[in-house]
Design a protein around this nucleic acid. Structure first.
Lengths: 120, 120
DNA sequence: CGACAATTTCAATGATCGTTGAATCATGCG
DNA sequence: CGCATGATTCAACGATCATTGAAATTGTCG
């Protein structure tokens, strides 16, 4: 999974992302939790990566953020000492129309998917 | 994954299936291939498990069928020496409204997902 | 019964996964 | 500069994954 540390993380070309990779990335409750939380706060384009420590340890979060990013689902932007994570809404919707909405709805409705209380 | 051999395979209660399990089951190109092929022939309630040998060896297919079945996506019915596989459409749609359609559309549109030529 | 067909199970393999904790890196601030 | 903060990387672990090929199972038909 390696990729030398860069101040700005690398995002895949959305057209190179395959459906199976997307679903694999969604196949984990913590990652679904990140997704629904992001969707809930998506008017805010700035949700700190550190807002998710209720869901997992910083190091584990970093791992899950990478999975979502590599699947083309999220974008991460470094700004000073902080990183902001957001959905790649428009691009992803163009590539896989309708999918993200129905995934988010599915996850949002299910109590097995964890959530964070606020985007801190 | 074992589950002693029974003439009729075991299907999970659809309400016990979790979103993360569903997505994990969808996170493989062969399984997506099975899904889109099933959807393409879904007017036919009787698609033989053996119709999918273009996608993988019999033993590997059996493994993938089990994953789809355990995720509540498909149903398998033994009839004599043959097994028929089908989508658990109504139940799955009740549990996760809209999801299956958008997953199938996503997989159907993508050339990376393999297909079988006919249900034999 | 015995041969055969369709399918699953089993055992083994290497690859990847999710998780942990310690180490590292980058940035901002005194 | 030196230290604290936010976050990623690294190394290690046991668990699960996808795949293979051989063996077992079930049912059909002569």
């Amino acid at each position: 999974m390696w990729e030398v540390m860069k101040q700005q993380p690398v995002h895949p070309d959305i057209d190179e992302v395959l459906p199976a990779d997307v679903f694999a990335a969604l196949g984990d409750p913590i990652r679904l939790g990140i997704l629904v939380s992001l969707a809930a706060f998506d008017e805010v384009d700035k949700v700190r990566c550190g807002s998710f420590t209720e869901l997992a340890s910083p190091s584990l979060l970093s791992y899950h953020f990478a999975k979502l990013r590599e699947a083309g689902i999220t974008r991460v932007r470094a700004e000073g000492t902080v990183r902001f994570i957001s959905l790649r809404r428009e691009e992803f919707d163009r590539r896989f129309p309708g999918l993200l909405d129905s995934v988010i709805e599915t996850a949002r409705r299910d109590p097995s998917v964890p959530r964070i209380s606020n985007p801190g």
